[in-house]
Amino acid sequence: MTQGSENLFETRVVFHIGPVPVSQDVVTTWGIILVLGVGCFLTTRNLSLRQGRWRSLVEAIVVAMRNQIQDVIKRDATPFLPLLGTLFVFIAAANLSVLVPGVKPPTARVETPAALAAIVFLSAHYFGIRARGVWQHLRSYARPNVLLLPLNVLSEFTRTFSLVVRLFGNIMSHEIIVGIVVALAGLFVPIPFMALGILIGLIQAYIFAVLATVFVGAAIGAVEQA
């Protein structure tokens, strides 16, 4: 268990590209990107108004994501769908990659959730400035009172940090639990925990995407400050 815990918290570099070390998480992410990219390419090639079951399912998921975003930000969700929808898809795929034998989910390490949270942080400001302008965007931190400016600025970082910790903590802890159960009880006992892991992975992906949507919505003035 100690060995497993060390492996879990340590960065495992697979190879180097020049001076850049490529970790296992990056490789796994490349695999996820490859699978998703190929899947999307195969799904959307030769599009026509007539469609099969698989494309109907994909289309239903995309439409559901767009409607979910639209319900939160109260405006056309198309400009926000690529970022927010991809967040859900990538996190869900990363969380569910644990089902592949020998693969550890990238979200179980802090770098990937931190990278996603940083992108959400920057994207919220990007969309906020684009929607309201720099001055109005900055003034939003002094509302409803200028005395709340430090708290609002602080909340920008804390909520981003909470995104990282929530996703990383849940997935990492699930990995630890499954590892412990496998070590103690054997091969087939952790299956219920792994099924629970699917649920947790989807829920965490949903929570991360919804919170990111709320942050972006708040930045563009569509919803109350989160």
Binding site: V20, S23, V26, T29, W30, I32, I33, R109, L116, A118
Partner: peptide
């Protein structure tokens, strides 16, 4: 890794 994952996500 953080930087590569950010780039990976943007690529995705």
């Amino acid at each position: 890794t953080l930087a590569l994952q950010a780039i990976n996500f943007l690529v995705l």
